[in-house]
């Protein structure tokens, strides 16, 4: 009873300060490992990601010379690339490439996933067959398809059966980009197909049952149940594909070096060539900054879509 008479202020003040101090040191002790675990990642992310990203912005205003040192040149790099007619050609080629991948490639995994989900036998085999090209290394892919596309290769033999004249798929500027898109679709559609297949198989079966009782035919079941259920997945894959294809350069570089007559010179390949063929790293970085601005907008859209999903 006596204790309650003592003013609460006096009683609490001293010990509370003590506990706060104690709490702070024990906090440090408690979280020391947590902070130690984060330090290496933070340091590496700064040195190997954030520094290059920021250096990219800065260096686009510099002339980069590894021997004599870098010199500030203002907007010279930008002026130089905007005056290069290859810039607009490469933008056009990239848009053409993106268009072709959408027309020739985007629907394939969706159709294949729906078809394979309906297989009663050999579903596993069809899945493996569709996915197997995805594990073929890029360099093997190039060697393989150079032969496939050869004027005396198997595709021309097939065309010959139908009475068509041989086509030089790679070295003819009219077909070179289409050939690259076909090759890449061959390699990559399997992984998208597996993603869509998981989507198709997760649709409850009784929805189809109910639709069928209501008299919906097979096509309307696909049109009104299967495809709408995968809407957000399809949108996500579309954005991912656009982001991916807008940065494409490896097949174009390996198979044709941007040729014939710059018909497969994409924007990213133009960037790479500026930097590593002409050794003009300043112009290369400036091109990278422009790409960053354009793709950053797409990245934000993807993030928004993803947030809706999860």
């Amino acid at each position: 009873m006596e204790q309650s008479v003592i003013s609460p202020g006096n009683r609490v003040k001293g010990p509370e300060k003590e506990t706060q101090k104690l709490k702070r040191t024990s906090n440090w002790k408690k979280y020391m490992w947590g902070y130690l675990f984060l330090v290496p990642a933070i340091v590496i992310f700064i040195i190997f990601l954030w520094v290059p990203i920021i250096k990219g912005m800065v260096y686009s205003f510099y002339n980069i010379d590894f021997v004599k040192g870098n010199t500030f040149v203002g907007f010279d790099n930008y002026v130089k690339i905007f005056n290069n007619p290859d810039l607009w050609l490469s933008v056009k080629n990239t848009l053409y490439f993106m268009f072709l991948t959408l027309v020739m490639g985007f629907w394939v995994p969706i159709a294949a996933a729906i078809a394979i989900s309906e297989l009663k036998f050999f579903q596993g085999f069809a899945r493996i067959a569709a996915y197997l090209p995805f594990v073929v290394p890029g360099v093997v892919l190039y060697g393989m398809w150079r032969w496939m596309y050869d004027p005396v290769g198997p595709i021309n033999a097939l065309l010959g059966w139908f009475g068509a004249d041989p086509v030089s798929f790679i070295s003819d500027g009219r077909f070179s980009m289409i050939s690259i898109v076909f090759m890449e679709t061959w390699q990559q559609f399997g992984s998208a197909m597996l993603i869509y297949l998981a989507g198709v198989l997760s649709i409850p079966r009784d929805w189809y049952e109910a639709a069928e009782i209501d008299g919906a035919g097979v096509w309307s079941r696909i049109k009104y149940i299967t495809l709408p259920s995968m809407r957000s997945l399809i949108m996500l894959m579309l954005i991912l594909q656009i982001i991916g294809t807008s940065q494409a350069y490896q097949s174009q570089l390996a198979l044709l070096d941007g040729g014939p007559n710059k018909a497969t010179l994409t924007y990213a390949l133009f960037t790479v060539k500026n930097a590593f063929t002409q050794l003009d790293y300043g112009a290369g970085t400036a091109l990278g900054v422009l790409m960053f601005v354009v793709l950053g907008i797409l990245g934000i859209i993807q993030f928004k879509l993803n947030r809706e999903e999860y």
């Binding site: 992310f45 190997f48 990203i53 250096k55 940065q247 930097a275 990278g288 790409m291 993030f303």
Partner: peptide, 22 residues
């Protein structure tokens, strides 16, 4: 801080990345 790097397309900083390593 870590996740933000996901939204920056890798090709756009490929060349400064190379310069940085050099």
């Amino acid at each position: 801080f870590i996740l933000l790097t996901l939204f920056i397309p890798a090709t756009s900083y490929m060349i400064p990345n190379f310069v940085n390593l050099k």
